[in-house]
């Protein structure tokens, strides 16, 4: 590796540990030797040019994608072919997608209670109470009985966040949660995420919202061509990028 990579001090308990992880799509080497350690309560922003493998990397963390070599250990559970481990990891890791992926045939409330009822085996009444609690938290309790198609994009994304929270995850993954939204809706979603960060949730967030990164992230990870090129505290990262590729990327996204 040519770029100087500052070894960061990781404080406290480890939530996610990725060691020498590689992934191929057929012949195409998407992820190369990924090493990443995330402490409990840490907020990490992942950025990089399109196609650099950001989505693929965070999707490996809850096994929506399978890695071919290296280790991924989430909350002490190693991700292998063992379904029990996969189930365990998935029930502790929540994920929010770019296109919300709400279930259109269920009401907002049912969207939020489906997994708690069928995976966590929580009584319906209690699951509904939890759902209302989180819907209140994302400020849309009055929409509970509507269907996803009747909500605005920003509201849908907040429902998606609430739906994940209903499983009471210890780690949240966000894959460009605001990039399908209009500017005025971006703020309401970011506010929800900031609130979540303030409560101490461990978060990995792929985003190009640099304001969000500066406000809440402990660390910014820059990826290019399937590699982690640079990672640093936000202040350092923006003011003093180490590699040429980072500088080029920052000049492009901050330039306009």
């Amino acid at each position: 590796m040519t770029t100087a990579q500052k070894q960061l001090q990781i404080p406290g308990e480890i939530a996610i540990e990725i060691r020498k992880m590689n992934k191929w799509y057929g012949q195409f080497h998407v992820l190369r030797d990924i090493d990443l350690t995330v402490a409990r309560g840490e907020r990490i922003v992942i950025c990089g040019p399109s196609g650099s493998g950001k989505s693929t990397m965070i999707r490996c963390i809850n096994r929506l994608e399978e890695h071919q070599s290296g280790d991924i250990i989430v909350d002490g559970t190693e991700l292998t072919n063992d379904l029990k481990n996969i189930d365990k990891v998935r029930s502790e890791v929540g994920m929010v997608f770019q296109h919300f992926n709400l279930f259109p045939h269920l009401t907002i409330l049912e969207n939020c209670t489906l997994a708690p009822i069928w995976v966590r085996k929580i009584p319906k009444k209690q699951a509904e109470e939890t759902a209302m609690h989180f819907l209140t938290k994302v400020k849309i309790p009055d929409q509970a009985l509507k269907y996803p198609g009747q909500l605005s994009g920003g509201q849908q994304q907040r429902v998606a966040i609430a739906r994940s929270l209903c499983m009471r995850p210890r780690i949240m993954l966000f894959d460009e949660p605001t990039s399908a939204l209009d500017p005025e809706m971006i703020k309401e979603v970011l506010d929800t995420m900031i609130e979540l960060a303030e409560e101490g949730m461990t978060m990995l967030c792929v985003t190009h919202e640099m304001g969000f990164a500066q406000a809440v992230a402990n660390r910014v990870v820059f990826m290019d061509q399937g590699q982690i090129v640079e990672q640093n505290a936000p202040k350092e990262f923006f003011s003093n990028p180490q590699s040429e590729r980072t500088k080029l990327f920052l000049s492009q996204i901050l330039g306009h």
Binding site: D87, G94, F97, N101, L102, A115, W118, S164
Partner: peptide
């Protein structure tokens, strides 16, 4: 039905049959 639907369900911990 878009792939996103089964991915969202998987991310919530639902098995393929469910």
């Amino acid at each position: 039905i878009s792939r996103g639907q089964s991915e969202a369900a998987a991310a919530l911990g639902l098995r393929p049959g469910r």
